[in-house]
Amino acid sequence: MTPLPTSLILHQYDFSNFAEKARLMMGFKDLAWRAVEIPPIEPKPKLTPLTGGYRRTPVLQDGADVWCDTKLIARELERRVPQPTFYPPNSSGTADAIAWWAEQQFMRPTALYVSGINADHMPEGLHADRAKLHGLPIPSIEAVRKAAYRNLQLVRPQVKWIADMLADGRPYLLGDLPSIADFATYHAVWFFRGRNIDCREVLNAYPRLIAWRDRMEAIGHGHRTNIDADVALAEARAATPATPRASEPQEGDPLPGQRARVRASDNAKDWIEGAVHFIDADEIALLHENGEVGQVAVHFPRLGYDWRSMS
């Protein structure tokens, strides 16, 4: 099959589990895409000009539009390439609910377990950077190690839940076809490979879960080309934000053209500010200006994010 050509750029780093989710989604849609390797910790001088200060990984770019958070990246990829779908008929609501659980309840203890076991093998400054991101004091290496075993007790029952979904022999979590539930759950399971110390023994009691993991991995990453960050910045600078779809503001929402600010709702401290470019029940996009890229539209999901009107 000839890959679908795109102008998409994924700003990511290779050991990011959320970036792995995005890479696998690109592969599922059989897309040709480009990758910019970004630092795993601040500063991120070739990313934040594009995002108005948003610093999480990954970010998807097309010209002067960028999409933050893999929840919204999935929706944007689906809008552009509807088939094969992340949302099979008759299961999309369940798939979204499982995806929310996987990323809001399962991912965090998994990350704390795996990064704690690998505390001495993580990039320098990573533990301090993540503590800052969540508004927490900087932990010692010993505290990170201790947290690993506390969180393992949260990980194990949730791993069993995944195994129980697959206990009847179905190939994917909701049946014969993969859905967004599989992508959101897989990237947490993928993280068990660790940085140096492999933590996948947590899965060994569940052969059907391991078989599901291997099926998901086999989807692959599509057709990736690595590029320099300056190429991505130049493309943003040469473009203008795409004409948005018609906005559908909800009660109390800021209207297009009014100023607003947005941040992740899980203790993130950094607000991104700009004029509302597009808004509906699922998405809000802000226009911001930067000397390095000109005007860029930064798109955020509504779920999991706070916004404040500034008008």
Rank of each mutant, 00 (worst) to 15 (best):
E142K: 09
V159A: 05
R55G: 08
T243G: 02
T185G: 01
R259M: 11
L173N: 05
C199N: 15
A268S: 12
R156A: 10
R259D: 10
V293I: 11
G116M: 06
L112P: 01
E217V: 04
N204E: 14
D30I: 00
Q153R: 14
V293P: 04
A238F: 03
K132N: 09
M165P: 05
A238G: 07
G93T: 13
W100L: 13
H221Y: 12
K132D: 13
Y54E: 03
N118T: 07
D164S: 12
P171K: 09
V202E: 11
A131C: 05
L133W: 10
M165N: 09
N204H: 11
E292I: 08
G252Y: 09
R56V: 08
A260L: 01
K46L: 13
I141G: 09
D182G: 04
G27D: 04
L133M: 14
K146C: 09
V114P: 01
G27C: 03
V296D: 06
G175R: 00
I73L: 14
I272V: 15
P139Y: 01
D69Q: 02
A32H: 06
G304R: 00
A275S: 14
D182T: 02
L4V: 15
L47Q: 12
R237M: 03
A184T: 05
I9Q: 00
L50F: 03
P43H: 07
W307Y: 15
Q258L: 03
A167N: 14
L203K: 02
S140H: 07
E76T: 08
Q258S: 08
